[in-house]
Simulated assay, not measured.
Amino acid sequence: MKKKLFSVLLVGALAASLVACGKTEKKEAKASTANTEINAEEYAGTITSNAGVYKTFVNLSDWKGMSVDLKESDYVVLDSDVEDYIKSMLESKATTNVITEGTTKAGDVIKLDYSGKLDGTAFSGGTATDVTYTIGSGKFIEDLDKGLVGLTVGQETDITCVFPESYYNSDLAGKTTVFTVTVNEIDESVVPELTDEWVAANAASLGIEDSSVTTVEQLRTYVRSYLETQASSSRSSAIFDAAYKQMSDGLDVSDYPSEELTDLINTLNSNVDAEYQSYSSSYSSKEEYLKSAYKFDSLDAFNEYADNYAKQYLLQKMIVTMIAADNNITVTADDINSTGEELASYYGYDDYNDILDTYGKTMNSEIGYQVLYQKIVDFVCENVTVNDTTDTAE
Rank of each mutant, 00 (worst) to 15 (best):
S282E: 08
D297H: 01
L290Q: 01
F302I: 08
N303M: 06
Q316A: 15
A324R: 01
D297W: 01
Y305D: 13
A325W: 00
E287L: 08
S285Q: 00
D307R: 11
Y283D: 12
Y283Q: 10
Y294R: 01
L314P: 10
D300Q: 08
D326N: 14
D326L: 12
D297Q: 06
E288K: 10
Y305T: 10
K311L: 13
K286V: 09
S281M: 14
L299I: 10
E288R: 06
I323E: 03
K295C: 13
S292T: 07
S285H: 02
N308G: 15
A325T: 04
A324W: 02
Y313P: 12
K295N: 15
I319F: 01
F302M: 09
T321N: 04
I323K: 04
K317N: 09
S282R: 00
K311D: 08
F302L: 08
S281F: 14
K311H: 05
Y294G: 04
S292Q: 06
T321P: 08
Q316V: 11
N327C: 11
K311V: 12
A301G: 08
K295A: 15
K295W: 14
S298T: 05
K286M: 08
E288M: 11
I323M: 09
A293N: 05
S280Y: 00
L290C: 02
S292L: 03
N327G: 09
E287F: 05
A306L: 13
N328C: 05
Q312C: 15
S285W: 03
T321F: 04
A301L: 10
D297R: 01
K295F: 15
K295Q: 14
Y305G: 08
S298H: 06
S282D: 07
A310Y: 08
M322K: 00
L290F: 02
N303V: 06
Y289Q: 03
V320W: 01
L315H: 07
A325M: 05
L314S: 05
Y309W: 14
Y305L: 13
Y289W: 07
D307M: 14
K286I: 10
L315V: 11
S280L: 04
D307E: 15
L315D: 07
I323C: 07
Y294C: 06
S281N: 11
L314F: 06
L315G: 10
Y283S: 11
D297V: 06
A293D: 06
A310F: 11
D326E: 15
A306Q: 07
N328G: 13
A310G: 04
N328A: 15
L299G: 06
L290P: 00
M322G: 01
V320M: 04
A325I: 05
S280M: 07
L315K: 09
E288C: 08
A301I: 12
D297I: 04
S292K: 03
A325R: 00
E304S: 12
L290G: 00
L299H: 02
L315W: 10
Q312V: 14
A293M: 12
A301S: 14
Y283R: 10
A310L: 07
Q316D: 13
S281L: 14
D300C: 04
I329G: 05
S281T: 14
S282N: 03
A325Q: 02
Q316E: 15
I329Q: 02
N308A: 15
D297N: 09
A324S: 06
I319G: 01
V320K: 00
A293W: 00
I329Y: 00
I319Q: 00
K311R: 14
N308K: 14
D300W: 03
E288Q: 13
L314Y: 02
D300A: 13
N327V: 09
Y289M: 06
M318I: 09
M318D: 05
L290W: 02
A306I: 13
